[in-house]
Amino acid sequence: MALRTLTLLRYWNKIQTRCNTVHAICNKIGNREILGNYTFAEPTYIDHWVFPLSTLRYKEITPNIQTLRNKEKGDWRHLSIAEKKLLYRASFRQTYAEFSAKTGEWKVILGVVLMHCTVSLWIYLYILYYINSSLPVSFKKDYLLAKYDRLDALNTHAWRNLTSNR
């Protein structure tokens, strides 16, 4: 009995959440018509070539657009070109050619990237010539040879001490 009650409560919570979501969606989209299945979690309007048909109409339904929609159900030859354009603009914000037109934004991005590369190169050259102009003494060949000789002598001396103690 308790399990059944918990199941019913969980189901009731899902229904309440779904109802709240529907009310929130209706508050967001206003008086716009939902056309089909949702592309994302809720109905949205997107002008993009990946989603050629949006799930919402672009504009809200006004009396002028509603009369044109009723007139649209008949013969399209009775509609003028201006009315057809108004109907199209009520459903879509931009045409395919408008939203897929080239903007030239890549030029700005390329310019910024090249400026960063130039600044980085100048910083690298400054560090190379003015900060790291000479290596420490410990990197010179004579010093390294002397260090290896000293280590060899120390290791030989330590090895003799270890073997003589046994």
Score class of each variant (00 low, 15 high):
4 R>N: 10
5 T>Q: 09
6 L>H: 04
6 L>W: 12
7 T>M: 12
9 L>M: 09
10 R>Q: 14
12 W>N: 07
13 N>H: 11
13 N>R: 13
14 K>T: 09
14 K>E: 08
16 Q>E: 04
18 R>D: 13
18 R>M: 11
19 C>A: 11
20 N>P: 01
21 T>D: 10
23 H>W: 08
25 I>P: 00
26 C>S: 12
27 N>C: 05
28 K>Q: 06
31 N>P: 03
32 R>G: 00
32 R>F: 11
33 E>D: 04
33 E>M: 14
34 I>A: 01
36 G>H: 06
36 G>T: 03
36 G>S: 15
37 N>I: 08
38 Y>E: 10
38 Y>I: 13
39 T>K: 10
40 F>M: 09
40 F>S: 13
40 F>A: 10
41 A>N: 06
43 P>A: 00
44 T>Q: 02
45 Y>C: 00
46 I>D: 05
46 I>A: 07
46 I>P: 01
47 D>T: 06
47 D>R: 05
49 W>H: 09
53 L>R: 15
53 L>P: 03
53 L>M: 11
53 L>Q: 09
54 S>A: 15
55 T>V: 12
56 L>S: 00
57 R>Q: 05
57 R>Y: 06
58 Y>I: 04
61 I>W: 00
61 I>A: 05
63 P>L: 03
63 P>H: 02
64 N>M: 14
67 T>S: 07
67 T>V: 09
69 R>L: 10
70 N>T: 14
71 K>G: 03
71 K>A: 07
71 K>R: 11
72 E>M: 07
72 E>A: 11
74 G>P: 08
76 W>D: 14
76 W>M: 14
76 W>R: 15
77 R>T: 15
77 R>L: 12
78 H>D: 11
79 L>K: 01
80 S>K: 04
80 S>Q: 03
80 S>Y: 03
81 I>T: 15
81 I>S: 14
83 E>V: 01
84 K>W: 03
85 K>F: 14
85 K>P: 00
86 L>H: 01
87 L>S: 00
88 Y>C: 07
88 Y>V: 04
89 R>P: 02
90 A>R: 00
90 A>F: 13
91 S>A: 10
92 F>A: 02
92 F>L: 02
94 Q>Y: 13
94 Q>M: 12
97 A>R: 01
97 A>W: 03
98 E>M: 05
99 F>H: 10
101 A>W: 05
103 T>C: 06
105 E>F: 11
105 E>Y: 07
105 E>H: 13
106 W>C: 05
107 K>R: 14
108 V>A: 09
110 L>H: 12
111 G>Y: 01
111 G>V: 02
111 G>A: 01
112 V>L: 12
113 V>H: 15
114 L>R: 07
115 M>Y: 03
115 M>T: 05
116 H>T: 06
117 C>V: 14
119 V>C: 05
120 S>M: 08
120 S>E: 13
123 I>A: 12
124 Y>T: 09
125 L>V: 12
126 Y>W: 15
127 I>R: 10
127 I>D: 06
127 I>A: 10
128 L>G: 07
128 L>A: 15
128 L>C: 05
129 Y>K: 10
130 Y>A: 06
133 S>L: 07
136 P>G: 07
137 V>H: 09
137 V>C: 09
138 S>C: 07
139 F>P: 07
142 D>W: 04
142 D>T: 11
142 D>V: 08
143 Y>H: 14
144 L>F: 05
144 L>V: 11
146 A>S: 06
146 A>E: 06
